[in-house]
Design a protein around this nucleic acid. Structure first.
Length: 582
DNA sequence: GCCGTTTTCGGCCCGACTGTTTTCAGTCG
């Protein structure tokens, strides 16, 4: 059973308890535990089966949750969860996902009108029954109707790249206004999470009202949800909810920290402040006893007040960054400028749009020292994948381009993205693969294997000793295709033995490895290569999204292969190939 | 249900906006 499945059950218990009106702190405990489990860098079921007592080392899991987790792992079920579902219909939980509907309103709808599903909700909305309920009126009914439509339309989240594009345009628009001091996007966008629920923008300015006016009149606004003096919310035409908050200069830092989150990072920081007799809110840092303000203008004030160094936004997930900060072992996170080359690039020879020369010229403009040309292999026929003969021909063309770019400072490596067949065999002859400078291996077919089958498939491929880099290791396409099931810990253990490097595919739809897998690789001492998988010249610029994810995964320059110089890169590959084969 | 620099009971982060209220509950982040 996956960690996410255990977390889902615990989250559902929390939802059910909320509708029941249970103790809010117990509910929080379930949510905290669920979040902790989602973020674990190891497979919880395996750990519990090996040594149940190690559960006690995990924070926010006490006696009660310990028992429930063991039960879930052993039986696949949780009696407490099932008992709750006997009282409360499961489909009621969908209603909580509609904004404006919380546990109390859902309970009222259920008890008073017998609403137990989205369909029921639509029915009572059409019949105009909601405005007759206690505590609800015509406006509530209308709001729920709008939220329901929004919910059906956007069901889910937006890719980071999409949200960043819209946010940056809006920030520029707001900056044009006179009297604006600071405009800063916060939230999961600033933490560079791979998907974004909504955009939060913070502003300081001479006068708040004109900013709010300008915001709600932005050309991209579809609907204004709320408009106040300090906070307004809109839905953009693309469907992203966007909130703007106006702050005083003296509280900007505290607010930036607060609205950057994550929620659990904030709770941990505030808890820390409370123990020091301080109170941290989005308005600043105050002494609990006297109420005296001791800071808040700069974000650093928040960290300093609780005795910590600055923690980069990408790390703020309460995944150990506070402890690391305390012990002075925060990572020095990788930056875009550390990248010296790109190791997965396609050209017209397979399914790319540009020539080798064009890709090389763009790479040179970006200041890179090297690129690898990695076409698909023959199994990926839709992408005009290469057979052995075409690989050898293509190698000559790459060598020719390399000769011309060498003196300009760019080396062009002969590579391939060889298909890992369902059997785990590679799609090209080993003798041909050995003649290439770099071999990237990847799964592109038969995604519906079981976890065991897929893990074996990839491990077999690694054990050929012929793969240097394992590309997009989970095959996910954000918002379109779930990652295929694979035991990443086992894969990385084998990769470590064979010196195989794990790819972080920087293409915005992939970001694969994800942040948690990057951290896992780092912890296991497996090197990561950040590659764009470029199919045209513009794609080369996607490297930044890979960097964002790498930073969320605690990666430093040293953890990433393509921060190496050309000669050091070759050394790493050479050493790997020199490792004893089975 | 978790947790301990107020340590095994009694707390648990904090504030804005909305709508239906007439002093506040619900929701959200």
């Amino acid at each position: 059973m996956e960690n996410s499945e255990i977390a889902r059950i615990l989250n559902e218990i929390a939802d059910l308890l909320e509708i029941k009106g249970d103790n809010p702190f117990r509910i929080r405990s379930y949510r905290n535990a669920a979040l902790t489990i989602e973020n674990l860098p190891f497979h919880l079921e395996t750990m519990v089966r090996e040594d149940e007592s190690r559960l006690d080392e995990i924070p926010r899991i006490g006696k009660g949750l310990h028992e429930k987790i063991v039960e879930i792992v052993n039986t696949g079920r949780c009696r407490y969860h099932e008992d709750l579902l006997k009282e409360i219909p499961h489909s009621l939980l969908d209603l909580l996902r509609i904004s404006g509907l919380g546990p109390k309103k859902v309970q009222t709808l259920w008890k008073e009108l017998g609403v137990t599903s989205i369909d029921d909700l639509e029915r009572v909305l059409k019949a105009g029954l909601i405005k007759k309920l206690p505590g609800m009126g015509a406006k509530t009914e209308e709001k729920i109707l709008r939220s329901l439509e929004e919910f059906k339309k956007r069901m889910g989240r937006f890719k980071l790249a999409t949200a960043l594009t819209y946010a940056q345009a809006l920030v520029s628009y707001l900056r044009e206004l006179d009297g604006i001091y600071q405009v800063e996007p916060a939230g999961s966008l600033r933490r560079r999470k791979d998907t974004i629920g909504d955009i939060d923008i913070l502003v300081t300015c001479r006068k708040g009202v004109p900013v709010m006016e300008r915001f709600v009149n932005y050309r991209e606004v579809r609907e204004v949800l709320a408009k106040g003096d300090t906070k307004s919310s809109v839905i953009l035409k693309c469907g992203i909810q966007t909130d703007l908050r106006v702050l005083s200069k003296e509280s900007f830092g505290a607010a930036l920290h607060y609205f950057t989150g994550s929620k659990n990072h904030n709770i941990a920081i505030r808890e820390r402040a409370r123990k020091r007799g301080l109170k941290i809110s989005e308005y600043g840092i105050f002494r609990e006893d006297t109420g005296e303000r001791i800071g808040g203008e700069r974000e650093e004030d928040v960290f300093r007040s609780v005795g910590l160094p600055f923690i980069a936004p990408e790390l703020r997930e309460n995944r150990g960054e506070i402890e690391a900060a305390e012990e002075g072992r925060l990572p020095k996170l990788i930056e875009l400028r550390d990248i010296k080359g790109d190791l997965q690039i396609h050209t017209r020879e397979s399914d790319g749009a540009n020539t080798i020369e064009e890709m090389a010229a763009s790479a040179l403009e970006m200041g890179y020292q090297y690129i690898a040309i990695t076409e698909h292999s023959k199994a990926v026929s839709v992408a005009k994948g290469l057979d052995e003969g075409r690989v050898l021909e293509h190698m000559k063309r790459i060598e020719e381009v390399d000769r011309r770019f060498k003196e300009k400072g760019l080396r062009v490596l002969k590579g391939i993205e060889v298909d890992i067949l369902p059997s785990g065999d590679l799609d090209l002859d080993g003798e041909v693969l050995k003649r290439l400078d770099i071999v990237v291996g990847a799964v592109h077919s038969k995604f519906n294997m079981t976890k065991e089958e897929m893990t074996e498939r990839v491990i077999r491929a690694i054990e050929t000793g012929l793969i240097d880099i394992l590309a997009h290791p989970t095959g996910r396409l954000i918002g379109e295709r779930e990652p295929y099931p694979i035991d990443m810990e086992r894969v990385m253990d084998v990769a470590k033995r064979f010196g195989v490097i794990m790819e972080l595919n920087a293409y915005p739809d992939r970001l694969d490895l994800n942040d948690i897998h990057c951290k896992l690789a780092k912890d296991k001492g497996v090197m990561v290569a950040i590659s764009t998988d470029s199919h045209n010249r513009m794609h080369l610029w996607n490297m930044k999204y890979g960097i964002y994810t790498a930073r969320r995964g605690w990666l430093e320059k040293e953890d990433v292969l393509n921060t190496r110089s050309y000669t050091d890169l070759l050394k790493v590959i050479e050493e790997r190939r020199g490792l004893p084969s089975p």
